[in-house]
Design a protein around this nucleic acid. Structure first.
Length: 643
DNA sequence: GTAATCACG
DNA sequence: ACGTACGTGATTACT
């Protein structure tokens, strides 16, 4: 037995690394005792974060309690596999920090099913996030094992991840190659692997006590574990990528980038991504720039450049001026480059051996509890053009179904602030913005009036004022101000709720508590954001509730992505209409007397098919049309090609 | 590392 | 006293 000792919070703790069959028997003896005493902390060391790549390896599995850790060298195979798998099976409850990662690692590489491991897991990261979702930079404790251990367990707790990267460098390895390249018997590697589970075991009771002290309900903690498990199953399934399509798209976008980059270069812009170069050249050409950035540089963003290029927001000629060729070229080169790097290439770089991408869904990413998706960032693919989403396919024999909540944030606002007239209008099935425009401008309101009322609604949900509503809607300032006053008279409950939430937050250490009991820290200088925090957070939990409904309805295996107010799914083509109805049913509920409703759209094989209403891609019309004869004849049925 | 930019809900 | 648009992820340029 290789053994290391360390001091944590005044206690000597022990890290055991079994070497022989005898050592493994000793480990199993410990497991029998520990399994009877309660939860066991669990962690894995692997070759990196790309769980689904072909070369990925599981290296060690660690088990431990507050005093003892066992680092099982999985890589040695044989008896080490047997012992670790047996422990995973017989231990009734596990503590894991950031459980979805280890669930997926063990599911794919042990293999040990996440369906078995997840129900007996407590995730200390979920608990910590429900106590304070902020990172250290924002004034919070942070949600990593290191800052949490330093705060709750021992101020001098080691930075097991950070310190190891220094070890990697001393061995001629990097932050990336170190996890795969470090010797399995390296003392620091093993010590830190063991300390991670000991720290997790010590952290958990502190978090439990803190949740208790703050009055966070156990049901909320439980519910977040269910959401995490569901999202892990979505991550494991992944999404089919149309690789042939993406290769063509990538090459075409690079050509486009080069072509317009060359135009910009002829005018002296070496790098189209350099705002300074673009501004210098534009000014030298005699253009007038009006806006500055926060740091005082000339602002040359998309809105500015579109104006100079005489293009509207849909990139159509306005005819108001002579287009500036540099602005036009910079716009096109930047877009093509960004789409290629951000989307096409990222898709190809995140493929598994079966041609699927497995996005990383973080179930509690935002301060408000909202989820985020990374690698690739599938919540942020362009929606005004279908070219990028066209790359993502439903499973074989399936079609894509997307189900959206109807105006969920406004409805949530009406429910939370108990806005009497708004609730009446929604319950009567009226168009809310029409209804508001009638209240504000009378029965003869115009389309512009409706647009302004919609803008004011957004302003209320975001906590904005007259100036931003004016900027967004383009309506005259005087009209915005008078409409705002009329709006507040029509829906006086919104201001009252905002004041009440802010007052309550000041009384509880600048934390507003959501409808589900979520703690949302407010920034002292932006307390007006409380309205948005309440709405965004409640909308997140409306989505979470709908997701639980979906699992009950047997839909989990068809779910692909949660996108704030939408769920993307891949369903059998022949039964698509029935599935769509089921998704709508799961996304229909009552929130404090306000109906939450949804609408499903049935697409074809590709995600992009749901965005092809205009048939052709506005921004890159040549992309597929010129490459694909078949597509040219069947623009609406592009998905069928892959089916 | 920070700023700017651009993609989404 | 006043007014403040919210939340993300990712890349590139530049210090």
């Amino acid at each position: 037995m290789q053994t290391y000792f360390h001091n944590i919070a005044g206690d000597f703790v022990r890290v055991n690394i079994p070497q022989t069959d005898n050592d493994l028997r000793e480990f199993m003896q410990w497991v029998r005792g520990a399994a009877g005493r309660g939860s066991v902390a669990l962690d894995t060391e692997t070759t990196g974060l790309d769980i689904f790549s072909a070369t990925y390896r599981l290296r060690t599995i660690q088990f431990g309690d507050a005093h003892t850790a066992w680092v099982i060298h999985w890589e040695r195979g044989g008896r080490f596999h047997e012992a670790a798998l047996w422990a995973l099976k017989v231990i009734p409850r596990f503590l894991i920090h950031n459980a979805p990662f280890d669930w997926l690692v063990l599911d794919r590489h042990a293999p040990f099913a996440l369906e078995i491991l997840a129900p007996k897991t407590v995730d200390t990261k979920i608990k910590a996030t429900l106590i304070d979702p902020r990172q250290p930079m924002e004034g919070g404790i942070g949600t990593g094992l290191k800052p949490l251990s330093a705060h709750y367990v021992d101020p001098s707790a080691p930075d097991t991840q950070g310190d190891l990267t220094a070890v990697f460098r001393s061995l001629g390895l990097t932050k990336v190659t170190g996890w795969a390249g470090i010797d399995l018997d390296h003392p620091t590697y093993n010590l830190y692997a063991g300390l991670d589970v000991i720290l997790t075991a010590r952290l958990d009771p502190c978090l439990t006590a803190e949740l208790d002290r703050l009055g966070v309900r156990a049901a909320l903690v439980e519910y977040e574990h269910e959401i995490a498990r569901m999202c892990s199953i979505m991550m494991r399934a992944g999404i089919v990528l149309d690789q042939d399509y993406v290769h063509v798209m990538s090459a075409t976008l690079r050509e486009e980038e080069a072509k317009y980059g060359a135009v910009a270069a002829r005018y002296g812009v070496e790098s189209v991504n350099s705002g300074k170069q673009v501004a210098d050249v534009l000014l030298a050409m005699g253009e007038t720039l009006r806006e500055k950035t926060d740091s005082g540089a000339w602002k040359v963003d998309k809105a500015v450049l579109l104006g100079l290029a005489d293009l509207d927001r849909d990139w159509q000629r306005i005819g108001a001026r002579t287009p500036n060729p540099v602005a036009d070229a910079v716009l096109r080169a930047k877009r093509a480059g960004k789409w290629c790097t951000n989307y096409a290439d990222t898709f190809l770089n995140n493929l598994d051996a079966n041609g699927r991408v497995h996005p990383n869904i973080q179930t509690l990413a935002a301060r408000t509890g909202r989820m985020s998706i990374t690698k690739p960032a599938l919540q942020t693919l362009p929606s005004s053009d279908w070219v990028i989403r066209r790359a993502m396919l439903a499973d074989p024999g399936h079609v894509m179904v997307s189900t959206d909540f109807a105006a969920v944030e406004m409805r949530v606002l009406a429910a939370l602030a108990d806005v009497r007239r708004m609730k009446q209008a929604i319950n009567a099935g009226e168009d809310l913005h029409d209804f508001t425009a009638r209240l504000v401008f009378g029965p003869n309101f115009t389309k512009a009036h409706r647009k302004l009322c919609k803008g004011i609604g957004f302003g209320k949900v975001y906590g904005g004022g007259a100036a931003t509503i004016q900027r967004q809607t383009g309506a005259p300032m005087a009209e915005v101000q008078s409409a705002l006053q009329a709006y507040d008279r029509a829906y006086p409950e919104i201001k009252r709720a905002s004041s009440r939430w802010q007052r309550e937050a000041r009384g509880t250490g600048m934390v507003t508590v959501s409808a589900t009991g979520r703690r949302l820290p407010l920034d002292r200088l932006r307390t007006y954001a409380v309205v948005n925090y309440q709405c965004q957070s409640a909308a997140r939990d409306v989505l979470g509730t709908a997701m639980l409904n979906m699992e009950k309805a047997g839909l989990l295996d068809y779910m692909k992505l949660p996108i704030h107010d939408e769920v993307l799914a891949s369903v059998p083509a022949r039964a698509a209409a029935d599935f769509a109805k089921e998704f709508e049913r799961c996304m229909t509920m009552d929130l404090f007397g306000v109906p939450i409703t949804s609408e499903a759209e049935i697409g074809g094989r590709s995600w992009g098919s749901l965005y092809m209403k205009d048939a052709k891609s506005k921004y890159v019309p040549s992309l597929l049309i010129e490459q694909d004869e078949w597509y040219r004849a069947n623009p609406h049925a592009a998905y069928a090609k892959a089916a």
